[in-house]
Amino acid sequence: SHDPDVPVVVMTAYGSIDEAVQAMKDGAHDFLQKPVDSNHLLLLIERALEARRLRTENVLLREEWARRYGFPRIIGESEALKRAVAETQRVAPTDATVLLLGESGTGKELFARAVHHLSARGEKNDKPFVAVNCAAIPETLIESELFGYERGAFTGANERRAGKFELASGGSIFLDEIGELPLAVQGKLLRAIEEKTVDRIGGRAPVPVDIRIIAATNRDLEGAAEAGEFRRDLFFRLAVFPIEIPPLRERGDDVVLLAQHFAQKFGKELRGRAAVLSDAAIVTLRAYAWPGNVRELENAIERACILADGLTLEPSDLSLKTATKEAAPTLDEIDLTGALAEATDRVVRFVERRKIAEALQAYDNNKTRTAESLGVSYKTLLTKIKDYNL
């Protein structure tokens, strides 16, 4: 049976440049004219086998291949990360829809770019990768941003504008924070996925698009679908191939590898030479829970490179507050000085932070169930988690 992963070398006695070009376009790895030099043939076979290994090994973790082929490099050696990488490389060559699941700051966009780069759409770097943060676009604008609009469709629409789906045609579109997409727009997204067409606002005919969908969320999307907050049919369309991106606290010594990488990067950028971590700093990094994951670690190392007196980063430069070493403040310790409104605000913030933290722990960090138990919207909960650095 035909195996698309088997590299093909075309050999002919009557070849021409045009035929060679056409063979390469049709997927051949290389083209040879007879008579064939055996050493040259062996070299081509070795290169073809290396190309195949590139698609089957953990290439996303290899720095040399990242430089050579332009892949986004994913740093880490933990088994949890390797599982996610292996799944990414398995699904990337297909055109299946991918749903990336993981907490905020775990690097979901990096994995999305890896899916694109390892696919036929991205291997020649000439097809677009368009990223859209669904939570960052106001609800009143999200439809026009995704699907575009015709001139005169609404006040201020002075010219036709293509949406993100059209701009991504031929390549991949990454829908980050897909769980925040309004219900009214979810139906149109479902149609775009199923029919491979989009309807511009004010348009008279559907516009065909050829795109691969990669979505991501830090939300319990299945739970949201069961609660009626997300369309079940859209969830099943998106969750063709779900990939769990592990939080940093579950990746063992990956935190040290990442910290060393960031120290070298920011040391060179800010000081002209790579920074290093002291043994005490490494102990501190391992003890911290990293609720903000890789993004929080990157920010902490950049800040440390600015604050440090030299090129060796110490625990004091990291400015981390570990929950195991600091007891939670009690109500009696709250500062009640100043005006009544100021004191009240401090008390409210104390109670809110503590209540949210307890609810998150009670529901195993399931934000959908936490929001329901607290009687607030999912978006309000996310805002407060960020505000209180939970």
Score class of each variant (00 low, 15 high):
162 A>Y: 06
164 K>D: 03
165 F>H: 09
165 F>A: 07
167 L>E: 15
168 A>V: 05
172 S>R: 09
172 S>P: 07
174 F>N: 05
174 F>C: 08
175 L>Y: 08
177 E>M: 12
179 G>T: 06
181 L>E: 11
182 P>K: 13
183 L>R: 14
186 Q>N: 09
186 Q>V: 05
189 L>Q: 12
189 L>M: 15
190 L>N: 12
192 A>D: 07
193 I>V: 14
194 E>K: 14
195 E>F: 07
196 K>L: 06
196 K>V: 00
199 D>R: 14
200 R>H: 03
201 I>A: 08
204 R>F: 01
205 A>H: 15
205 A>S: 14
206 P>S: 09
207 V>P: 01
208 P>K: 09
208 P>C: 04
209 V>W: 07
210 D>L: 04
210 D>T: 04
212 R>G: 02
212 R>M: 04
213 I>G: 08
214 I>C: 10
215 A>D: 08
215 A>M: 12
216 A>H: 08
217 T>G: 06
218 N>Q: 15
218 N>Y: 06
219 R>G: 01
219 R>I: 13
220 D>T: 02
221 L>E: 14
223 G>S: 11
224 A>T: 03
224 A>F: 05
225 A>G: 08
225 A>H: 09
226 E>H: 07
226 E>G: 01
227 A>I: 04
228 G>N: 10
228 G>K: 13
229 E>L: 15
230 F>S: 03
231 R>S: 07
232 R>E: 15
232 R>Y: 04
233 D>I: 05
234 L>D: 08
234 L>F: 06
236 F>G: 00
238 L>R: 05
238 L>T: 01
238 L>G: 03
239 A>T: 02
241 F>P: 01
245 I>K: 00
246 P>Y: 11
248 L>D: 00
251 R>H: 03
251 R>C: 02
253 D>P: 00
254 D>E: 11
257 L>S: 09
257 L>K: 03
